[in-house]
Design a protein around this nucleic acid. Structure first.
Lengths: 270, 270
DNA sequence: CGATCTGTTGACTGTTATCAACTCCGGTGG
DNA sequence: CCACCGGAGTTGATAACAGTCAACAGATCG
């Protein structure tokens, strides 16, 4: 799977929103971890649990889900490098079920380490605060998304967000990535019915904005998708958002050439 | 207006979610403030602004509004004692427009004071963290509300939340309080159209759950309203939520007796 | 006392949920 | 090897819900 050490994932994520020194990175390298694997839709931590370590996502996708089974609202989605439960450093109690959206690899990191890190370096302390508040900002943006946009735009916006967050930690370089969602999960995230989610995806495909087959998404027209979704990445608080946006309008030129042939067959790799 | 000193509002709010000592309260009493007044729908701080003080709400209601004019989504509502922009201690930039929902009184408190307070007392530091994360928890709950509940339930839920948060800081003792919302604001908070907001309110009135006239709300049947909304106050992280819930089913017995007469005339006071 | 904001109503339209059926796929066990 | 199964995706028909438009009533405020 070639994921390097756990701390590099965290360092990469922190660096996307804050400035870390080499010493800070060295400190993070001493992070004690317990690596765990979870299957798709397994509950990593149940709602209300008291915890004394945080969960650093290394591979795959996690989500916060309000009610455990099936159709409970998904309130946020997390990509590798995220620490979804960082706020448990202050509050301990989990506000919802932390659930795997696909097979995932996570590293449990003791609260104590984060407290040490925060005392050792003001920059790390600040970066961790930013990481926690960036989740708040995402949540606030998601309220806007649910409250003001029609379902087609909602889904487009979510796809844009996931893509950019992946690119911010060095993934999805070619605008192709494993989908965090089954269509039912997408519905649970966007507050629509699974049937409608299906029709929305079909519409996005029909418009040539993306391919979405067997758990792989390829964004064919980033600018079209972002325009449809009215996507503005400011709320992600990335230090250099432009580094992660496609450079020109020929977003996925290679992919488009590849798929100019008979039909779509280029969705295997990651 | 009889509001006491600014710090007592903050102390009351902090005490609702965390344990403060007398020394902590004394420290808070030394809080330097600049008192300001804003008119209804005035912008207290515009989106994107960099600030070096926080805004403690003393009287009235504030909200975060995504886009300035008219129909921009309201992402959260704040009651007296709240510090909506507490996270600017870490990030400075405002994530949305901070707007008055009615004539308000606020106290601007320098970031420096909060930093001092946090160094001076671990309890204060913890309480401030909780205050900030409680806003996150509200936001997460609001995503659930928008994503999973029908509009009638959404509005009912929001009314329950506001009522309980007011009671947690000693207001709305009789389940009657000034509404934070015009019907248009309510629509902007709940992601529905203003016309529909009007019809929802009528339905809530028709069911005998509340009175809502000229900016005053009186909850006539708390249990009915909470049941309709599927309201569970856990997400507010109150230390003693039961203290703020009505004791028995005869929620507003006095008010109900009053309004058993010809028509509703008992909504003036606060 | 007119201007403006807020609340209210009716008619119509469009979006989305729901229900039900069916396909496709991968895995599992006979 | 094949039958079966469950999960995921797809489709069509129908009904409920909510948005839009337009007009007007009532309140509030200069």
């Amino acid at each position: 799977m070639q994921m390097g050490f756990a701390f590099t994932k965290l360092a990469s994520r922190l660096s996307s929103i804050a400035d870390l020194s080499d010493e800070d990175i060295e400190f993070l390298a001493r992070m004690p971890t317990i690596i765990s694997h979870f299957g798709s839709h397994e509950t990593v931590m149940p709602k209300g649990e008291r915890v004394s370590s945080c969960c650093l996502l290394l591979h795959g996708y996690l989500c916060w889900r309000d009610t455990e089974h099936g159709a409970g609202q998904i309130t946020s989605v997390h990509v590798p490098g995220d620490v979804p439960d960082l706020h448990t450093l202050q509050t301990q109690r989990l506000p919802a079920h932390l659930q795997a959206l696909c097979p995932v690899v996570v590293a449990f990191v003791p609260h104590a380490f984060f407290h040490q890190a925060a005392s050792a370096s003001l920059r790390i302390s600040h970066a961790l605060s930013l990481l926690a508040f960036a989740d708040s900002a995402c949540l606030r943006n998601w309220v806007v998304n649910l409250g003001t946009r029609a379902s087609l735009q909602r889904v487009a916006h979510l796809v844009c967000e996931i893509a950019l967050r992946l690119r911010a930690v060095g993934l999805a370089k070619d605008m192709r990535f494993a989908s965090p969602f089954t269509q039912s999960d997408l519905a649970a995230a966007c507050g629509i019915s699974p049937v409608h989610a299906n029709r929305i995806i079909q519409e996005l495909r029909r418009r040539g904005l993306l391919q979405w087959q067997s758990r792989m998404i390829a964004i064919m027209d980033w600018h079209g998708l972002a325009a449809l979704a009215d996507f503005n990445p400011d709320y992600l608080w990335l230090r250099h958002p432009r580094d992660f946006l496609p450079a020109t309008t020929d977003t996925v030129r290679n992919t488009q050439q590849a798929t100019a042939r008979p039909s779509a067959v280029s969705l295997e790799a990651h």
